[in-house]
């Protein structure tokens, strides 16, 4: 069984209509999986379902062999999930270091080493450690946000459009960092608007259409698939 295997997820927000229909998402250890697709395809919703932020009517989520389908997002954090929301993902009036400390709030052991690791991974975060996170640039904020999520030492890190609204150069830089994170053995599940660039770094890609799996393959294969190229990647 895969490290994360979410199978046949069906459901929506609250009592609203179903947004997801029998959606499958799996991620292996240390792998980067990317969810792409047109607007309104349920990309973010799919990831939020994995994180327990909506009610699933059917389907299950299994992480590292444990069924976590019924757990709340907070409990999933304890189980080893890290989540970086798309917006409002930092504590703006707190220093960068305090942001990391808050990330480690649930830990009762010494987290200094993890902070050091985050500093190593993101030199920009180290540089700005005493500044308020709200004063940083978009790309730096995203790095702080990812750093904060890493503080719980998650086994699976989920990123909701981490490159939304940043320049192409910053995007490349962010993707490089994400590859670095994956290299430390953390599995990554990420929703991306910049499908082409994201698939380039992805071990596995999911193309979603209207809350269903449309294409699933390695990033490379999806990029090569003429059908996918024509419909979703603009030629």
């Amino acid at each position: 069984m895969s490290f994360l295997s979410a199978t046949k997820m069906t459901g929506g927000y609250g009592a609203g209509p179903d947004i997801l229909h029998e959606l499958d998402l799996t991620v292996e250890k240390g792998e980067i999986a990317v969810i792409v697709g047109p607007n309104g395809a349920g990309k973010s919703t799919g990831m939020k379902a994995v994180f327990g932020m909506l009610n699933l009517r059917e389907g299950s989520v299994v992480l590292d062999g444990k069924d976590i389908t019924t757990l709340s997002p907070q409990e999933r954090v304890h189980m080893g999930m890290g989540f970086v929301p798309q917006v409002r993902n930092i504590f703006p009036t707190m220093s960068v270091r305090e942001n990391l400390e808050m990330g480690a709030f649930i830990r009762n052991d010494d987290y200094e080493k993890t902070i050091e690791q985050v500093y190593e991974l993101f030199p920009a975060v180290y540089e700005k450690r005493d500044q308020n996170a709200g004063e940083l640039s978009g790309g730096q904020r995203q790095q702080v946000a990812v750093g904060r999520a890493l503080m719980t030492q998650p086994k699976l890190l989920m990123l909701d459009e981490p490159t939304a609204g940043v320049s192409p150069i910053v995007m490349d830089e962010l993707f490089d960092r994400i590859i670095e994170v994956a290299k430390t053995g953390i599995s990554i599940l990420m929703v991306e608007q910049n499908a082409r660039q994201a698939l380039e770094i992805a071990d596995k890609g999911y193309v979603l259409v209207q809350g269903r799996n449309a294409y699933t393959d390695t990033g490379e294969a999806l990029l090569a698939n003429p059908e996918v190229r024509r419909t979703f990647l603009g030629g």
Binding site: Q74, T93, F105, R148
Partner: peptide
């Protein structure tokens, strides 16, 4: 600090286990 975090960003504070 957890109070300031909560005041800053309630949702993220919840995510962080506060």
């Amino acid at each position: 600090k957890s109070m300031r975090a909560y005041s800053d960003n309630e949702d993220l504070a919840l995510l962080s286990g506060i």
